[in-house]
């Protein structure tokens, strides 16, 4: 089988160091390409082969992958921001000012985090629209759509809790208005609002709760559900195909 890799990848892949890290045949042959995927912890959930149609940019626009990439960028920049940020009413705003004016690459870090966050909300919604328009939520992929809706809610939760953390007027009043809307929920509204705020209004308790939700609870939930979402794509027979090919594919579904 002709190799698709440039020569330097192949030379690298034959080297001793490379082969101490990656077991199996180097990529380039059919077996090597397969082993590159299924012998890799981070890739093993992917199928070894995919249908060319699912690679077409105009079918998926790679929106799910981009959403995941944005999540990774947010996690990386978020951890870096946590080194500087103090979730206290007295110090939160000043830690953001420090990031802006004192910390090396602080503005870049914060800007990357902020713009990735906005982009993620947009991309996740677009991803949902793509899945709807290609009818990819239909059997056997119903449950993965539900997981996707939960991921959308988590994304909004991230954005909402993160907005309060700089402790500026915009975030403070967004949280005030937002939790006010939560308070309108029937039966449980007031209790949920109290649970979120740890009091009657947005104060130190609310800041700490939003911080813990933003940096701990939501990331854990997001990582678990994202793993479920990816795993289900495979278990539900891979990405959806155009209607003409789908019936064929359903007979060959990998269990």
């Amino acid at each position: 089988m002709p190799s698709a890799e440039p020569g330097w990848i192949q030379r690298l892949a034959r080297g001793r160091v490379w082969r101490s890290i990656f077991r199996g045949e180097p990529p380039g042959t059919a077996r090597g390409n397969a082993q590159a995927v299924f012998q890799n912890l981070w890739l093993h959930f992917l199928p070894v082969k995919v249908r060319p149609h699912t690679l077409r940019f105009t079918y998926t626009f790679y929106l799910g992958g981009i959403a995941f990439l944005l999540f990774l960028v947010l996690a990386a920049t978020g951890v870096a921001l946590m080194f500087y940020y103090v979730p206290s009413v007295e110090r939160a705003y000043h830690s953001i000012k420090d990031l802006q004016f004192v910390v090396s690459f602080g503005p870049l870090l914060r800007n990357l985090h902020r713009w990735s966050a906005h982009a993620m909300v947009v991309v996740v919604v677009l991803h949902m629209a793509r899945v709807y328009y290609t009818a990819s939520y239909k059997a056997p992929r119903e449950f993965n759509w539900v997981v996707g809706v939960m991921l959308l809610l988590l994304t909004l939760g991230f954005s909402f809790t993160g907005m309060l953390l700089p402790w500026d007027q915009a975030g403070f009043w967004a949280a005030t208005v937002g939790t006010g809307i939560v308070g309108c929920l029937p039966v449980v509204g007031k209790e949920v609002r109290l649970l979120l705020l740890g009091g009657d209004s947005v104060g130190q308790n609310a800041l700490l709760r939003f911080y813990v939700l933003h940096c701990m609870a939501l990331p854990l939930a997001m990582a678990s559900l994202t793993a479920t979402h990816f795993w289900r794509i495979r278990k539900d027979g891979g990405l959806s195909l155009p209607p003409s090919q789908e019936s064929m594919a359903s007979e060959e579904r990998v269990p």
Binding site: A36, V37, L43, L46, V50
Partner: peptide
């Protein structure tokens, strides 16, 4: 079908 590495 094409192989996931490198195509995807």
């Amino acid at each position: 079908a094409v192989s996931t590495w490198p195509h995807l």
